[in-house]
Design a protein around this nucleic acid. Structure first.
Lengths: 235, 235
DNA sequence: GCATTTCTTAACGTTTTCTTAAACCCGGGC
DNA sequence: GCCCGGGTTTAAGAAAACGTTAAGAAATGC
């Protein structure tokens, strides 16, 4: 299964840490949040494939968060709760959650359920649903719609080739993070990089040509001398 | 939620009867089978939206049945088992089941989980799942009547073959969204795509022949090179 | 059981995109 | 200011993806 981005939300930082470690071992990328509002923020603008959400949290509880997230995105939600009352499970599943586990949970079962949810969600097209907001990555004037696979730069449509699209989508999903050419090759092409750094650079250049006003002085796609490339995080 | 067809499989006829009654109260249509082989037969012949499957059965057990069904169809599967061992749950979920409940189960929770699975499966676009409300899909000059299964292009009737109809209905239900040939195959044919991309392309071409003024320069059914096809969203 | 329609498969042509390699340029240390 | 290890640019050949056609297989209807 391809790597997925999973948001883990619980007010207990230890629990978040434990679940994060577990899911990272499964090969996923994990984002963390410590209450419902933070979760909502994290979901906004970012590509999240699944949310593991505790029901009991301060500020905004898990059920309210489920409803709020559903209004924006169609991402699968797995609820966690200390309560094993059937009524709670039924309530959670009824308002839009995809699965419900009672604490204490078996970590392996949690991983298995997460994988089962991801399997279906990703395989069914990862975005089959026209979620209210659609799946879009935003950074400065760049808007990448991952449903329609289209890019607009300051509102103007820009045509990308498949490799350019995948490369840009990857960089935009991790703004600010620096990747070496070899890392980019392995993540985007999904095969070991054997002297293919230059290939990546050529695509970087093509991308700059398309998204930068002045490709010589890039505003988005910056080089970090000796280390790699990054998508500059523009508020 | 629209009425769904659910296959309930258990060697204990009483249990099948009880679950069937429960799900019928929820407004679903229920098919019954009493072992894995019967289940396979039922799935083969009919359109099934979800399967509730007992793990312990004669002739062919639930896990084998899960594997066998998955080889043909992509329908969600909820496993039921007398064993509450975590290892069994994990095994079930790993081989392709979507959910797992241990007996004795709370009937209301079973119903809630069934509904949660159906919600996502149907909404993510099980082939041919068209809401009764919007019985016509309109896009530009295309009008697809999902009740009568008829298409008009700029007012003129156009005959579609069954496969063409399903493919077009799927694409029109998500205008603007790009799907790869493999995704289209899996969602329209509802079976794993094994080198069947070309089949999809041929049907795409036939559709273009029927709905496009100039099939070489399609206005509706566009290709996004390297990524897939989409139904262009005409205001 | 036969006739008709529809689907699948495979081969080939066309278009687009990717990769490669070589030349060039720039930043920073000396 | 010169040198060197990157980084950038260019262009052309190779590869991949799509389009088209046709024929045989399968399903359907009579």
């Amino acid at each position: 299964m391809r790597q997925a981005t999973i948001l883990v939300v619980d007010d207990d930082r230890e629990i978040v840490g434990a679940i994060a470690k577990l899911l990272e071992l499964e090969g996923h990328r994990v984002l963390r949040a410590y209450d419902g509002l933070e979760a909502l923020e994290a979901v906004h603008g970012q590509a999240v494939d699944l949310i593991v959400l505790d029901v009991m949290m301060p500020r905004m509880d898990g059920l309210s968060a489920t409803l709020a997230v559903r209004r924006q995105k169609n991402v699968p939600i797995l609820l966690l709760s200390a309560k094993s009352e059937d009524a709670d499970k039924i309530a959670g599943l009824s308002i839009g959650a995809d699965d419900y586990m009672a604490k204490p949970y078996n970590p392996m079962e949690l991983a298995a359920r997460v994988n089962a949810l991801l399997r279906r969600y990703l395989q069914l097209g990862a975005a089959g649903a026209q979620g209210p907001a659609g799946s879009r990555l935003v950074n400065g004037g760049l808007v990448l719609d991952t449903d329609a696979k289209t890019l607009t730069v300051d509102g103007a449509d820009v045509r990308l080739t498949p490799t350019e699209y995948k490369l840009l989508a990857f960089l935009m999903s991790r703004p600010g993070h620096v990747f070496s050419a070899a890392q980019l090759y392995e993540r985007v092409w999904d095969e070991p990089c054997y002297n293919a750094e230059n290939t990546v650079m050529v695509h970087i250049r093509h991308l700059r040509e398309k998204i930068e006003l002045n490709p010589k002085k890039p505003k988005y796609l910056k080089v970090v001398w000796g280390l790699g490339y990054k998508m500059e995080n523009i508020q």
